[in-house]
Design a protein around this nucleic acid. Sequence first.
DNA 1: TTGAAAGCGCTAACAA
DNA 2: TTGTTAGCGCTTTCAA
Lengths: 326, 326
Amino acid sequence: MTLRDVAKLAGVAPITASRAINTPDQVSAEVLRKVQEAVVRTGYVPNRMAGGLASSRSRLIAAVTPSTVMSVFMGTIEALNGTLFDAGYQLMLGQTSYSAEREEALLEAIIGRRPDGIFLTGLLPPGKSRTLLMASGIPVVESWDLTPTPIDMLIGFSHSDIGREVARYLASKGHRKMAVVRASDERAEQRARAFSEEVLQLGLTPVVEVNVGSSRSITSGRDALTQLLDACPDVEVVFCSSDLLALGVLTQARVLNIDVPGRLAIMGFGDTPLASDMVPALSSVRINGEEIGQLAARCLMDRAEGREVLRPMVDVGFSVIERDSA
Amino acid sequence: MTLRDVAKLAGVAPITASRAINTPDQVSAEVLRKVQEAVVRTGYVPNRMAGGLASSRSRLIAAVTPSTVMSVFMGTIEALNGTLFDAGYQLMLGQTSYSAEREEALLEAIIGRRPDGIFLTGLLPPGKSRTLLMASGIPVVESWDLTPTPIDMLIGFSHSDIGREVARYLASKGHRKMAVVRASDERAEQRARAFSEEVLQLGLTPVVEVNVGSSRSITSGRDALTQLLDACPDVEVVFCSSDLLALGVLTQARVLNIDVPGRLAIMGFGDTPLASDMVPALSSVRINGEEIGQLAARCLMDRAEGREVLRPMVDVGFSVIERDSA
DNA sequence: TTGAAAGCGCTAACAA
DNA sequence: TTGTTAGCGCTTTCAA
């Protein structure tokens, strides 16, 4: 079933059928009716590959994320996808699985599809992929971080600010011996560094840090607390790089009969649905991931449709959420 | 940058350049070298829309899921995506957000892209979408359930079998007053129904059921337990329709100082990473979601590439995982 | 408001 | 092994 078949059935030229389908107000009521009828009768579904090739507009947006299972980014991706779909776009999803090599192959595959825009979770460091992307001329949104030198557009927040603010918050609660439990990703490291620096600035005990590597499970959190207590038995508060890790620390604290927040306070990151439902409820840092997704969708569509992008760099900020655990 | 530019630079015909890129062993070493050099020098990335249009093979697979955040399906989608990507395919992701209306629009949009295959989480009930899909001739895999009348291929397991087996398992542990806490989705209902029937068969107290509606959070689980204890204070075990709900029930039990599994046993579903890390560790029903994704990828690619599909209907089964909570 | 012609960038089919 | 020709299904441009 092609446009020609529909046109023939409706007794018009293919281009007229195309207009009836895509820009119905450019066509007489009579023609519109006949074409619509023909579409229904034939079950015609336009071939968007052909349309995209002819118009150089694919109505496809690609999104790149490190992982999808239990990932903090999924709220963003879901919002992005929802906003795009309502406007007639579709989402292609790529996973890097935290591998730079894979990311490069992925970006080349994505560029090959000629999407109207690309959404990246995180920043793209200088390298072959970045060069390729910039050369392609495809609108890009980087996200979940800030930098003075984005590829194109940017919607994020400052991880250093978070580290500092959490340090001040915990200090204000009277904690003096602070620790960090974190995964080995760059943004977590950035938060941890700023956190440690601020703690020193405040004249408190230097921060003890446990790096759980690339596994970001509850178990890692449990193991990390054990390790931490070995190194520093009188630690008073742990700032975790994700709610999942915090949940692990919390779980292990319960197993060891350590009172939370009485003897040990715990702070998460991400404010996932898990956090508020824990007992004790987990204090965390809230990021409005949905907002990032929605804004990114708007930016990319504005670019794709030739409109000026009003705010190509947005800091969506964050908020420290005080609950029972810290 | 098009293939023509590359060909010109390499001093060959476009089709020869195409061969050098796509089927390098059909081309002399000399030509291969020249074309590769031209590709590097121009930064050429083939336009897959054009290639897809010409060859009627898009190398695109579409996947449809109800939701992505904290969803049990994401392991499947991740495995699907990984397997496909390694074979040169890409994934388009669509979300129905549990809306039939949206699902229909989504499927039409998907068909418009002429993907080489479509993966559905769940079964597609008879209706306009199903008709459209069957008419399109695109290979389809339905999943996470069984039916004698799939659209095309099917990779799943029996929810009724699960309900029955869990009932027998819990009965074997000496429980007599059983309850179900479930979300209002069809598969959860199927498990609950079979569970209740089997409990009656075994001559035990009829099952009390709490339906938490469409919200599938930890909070729903907590509320559900409160509700359940109101209705039936001496309940001995709760079979939940997801690990997340089970975690909620577990949390609330702790708040109410109810011993688990001593006074109340809890059984989850999905065996997500959460389950094994809880304290007490959550007994659950394990589904090999990754296997479903991998098998589906194989089936769809086999079909797309004209190979015979050896096993178009697969029951991947399940296993009851005994841990501390039940 | 409608249509004819040309072409988007690539590959299938055939020929040399 | 390489090239020529034709066309995938649609939209752009221009003309009526």
